[in-house]
Structures are given as structure tokens and as C-alpha cells.
Amino acid sequence: MSNASLTTKFIEIQGVEQTFKTKKGPFTALRDINLTIAKGEFVALIGHSGCGKSTLLNLIAGLTMPTGGALLCANREIAGPGPERAVVFQNHSLLPWLTCFENVYLGVERVFGAANKSTGAASESKAQLKERTDAALALVGLTHAAQKRPGEISGGMKQRVGIARALAMEPKVLLMDEPFGALDALTRAKLQDELLQIVTRTHSTVVMVTHDVDEAVLLSDKIVMMTNGPAATIGEVLSVDLPRPRNRVALADSPQYLGYRKAVIDFLYTRQAHVEKAA
């Protein structure tokens, strides 16, 4: 394949189906998922809870294997999890017995501490690894908290360490599972702005699961809206053509922004509203 097709089809999801075995028999969580994600694209997955957004993200991460179909990243089948597809977990998942520095260093050491066969990069020295870790913490503005343990810092700071850990590994893809879901609105807005800046600088490819309409419109290039489970699939894909850099205050009364917002809300609460009624 040429480089051009790689930039437009960096991640390819082809006819993916995910079925779980349960006591009541097989349960189909996802079916007929077809999606391509370009390099450097920011994609949001949105849908009601239980629609399989996180299941899809775990499939891209390689944490679970699909029961049907195939997932490709850079033309290679995703066979398992790895640092090139870093995950920012919903509840930060920092190791409480390590300091913030050590949490980030753990990933850095694994990726850059040994010679890399696929890229031919030599192993880096301890000082270089330390520098990378410090740089990642500086990127999320946490240099001062490097020697603190996760139990000593706030929820927003923990989530930032989680992002730093993911970014420090220089992943090809950044996968985020409702990264700001557990935070208050003000902290969430601050971290969204930080994430926008970081992604602009690093040109990362990002797939983010969210249930926040504003977050999806503000951050993404593409919003993937999912139908309700069971057997959820992609209902609609909305391209968000707002110019970057984006400013939440300026966008607040932009008709274009409000149009996108309306489209997502319309999908979620008019066309996919039946689950709430059934429950």
C-alpha cells in the first residue's frame, strides 16, 4: 500500500463483531462495525451507556479479540495490546505504590529502554529515559508532583499523569476511555483545552470514548455515533469541520458549532432514545 492510503486508512475496522458468552447464552455486543481512521485524526465514539463504545475501544487497544471481522493498524492486524496503542483508562489506573514519575517511567523504560527491532532504534540511557519522563510530566504541567504518589494528588492530576504515561511512550494511537468522565465540569474543561494543545503539538491520532456531546464536538474531527445495544453498531458518522485551534468561548455561540451539537443530540435523544423508555 502507498503512503497516501496509510494516512487516510491508518486504522481500519472491517466488519467487526463482538459476542460475549454469558450464562444466558451468547450476547452480541457489537455487529457490523466498519470504520476507517486517518493518521492524525481525532475521533470521538459517542452513544448511550451499554452501547459498546468501550468494547470497541478495547478491541482497537487489543485488550480483547473480536469474534468476527478484523482490525488493522498501519496495515497490520491488531493481535494484542502494545505501547504503540496507548490507553488512557477511565479511572486513571495509576499504580498507587509508585510515584507519578515512576508510573510514567514504567512505560518509557519498556518502550525506549530496550533496542527496538521494528524501528531499529538503539536502547536509550537512563538519563535519556529520565528526560523523556520529565518531559511528559512537564507536558501535562505536573513537574511539581513528580515525586508524589497517586493517593496524594487530585483526580484531575491523576488523569493528567495517566495521559502523560500514555504520551511518553510516543504511541501511534492514543486511546482514551472517558478520560474526563469522573471529573468536575471545570477541571474537565481545563483538561480538554490541555489535550487540544497537546494533540496539536504531537499530531497524535486519538480515539476517545465519551458521553459528553460538547466534549465530542469541541475536540474531534469525526464523531462516531453508536446505536443502542445489544448488537450495537455505528449509526452515523459526523465530520466536524470546525477550524483549529478551537476556542470553547468563541465556539459557544457559533452557529456551525451549535449545528453539530444539535445533530449529535438529535441522534442520541430522538432517534436512539428508546432504550431509556424500555428500561
Binding site: P81, A86, S93, L95, G107, R110
Partner: peptide
């Protein structure tokens, strides 16, 4: 979650044992 972290970071069995 911790085991998922270990898998994403692709930690060796020794690191999983000592660090997690």
C-alpha cells in the same frame, strides 16, 4: 485495570511480578 496497564505497556512477567 492494573493488569490491563501491564498488557498495554507490554511489561515482562518479571516486571508484572515486581511492580504490580
Amino acid at each position: 485495570d492494573y493488569m490491563n496497564v501491564a498488557r498495554v505497556l507490554n511489561l515482562s512477567e518479571w516486571k508484572i511480578l515486581t511492580k504490580i
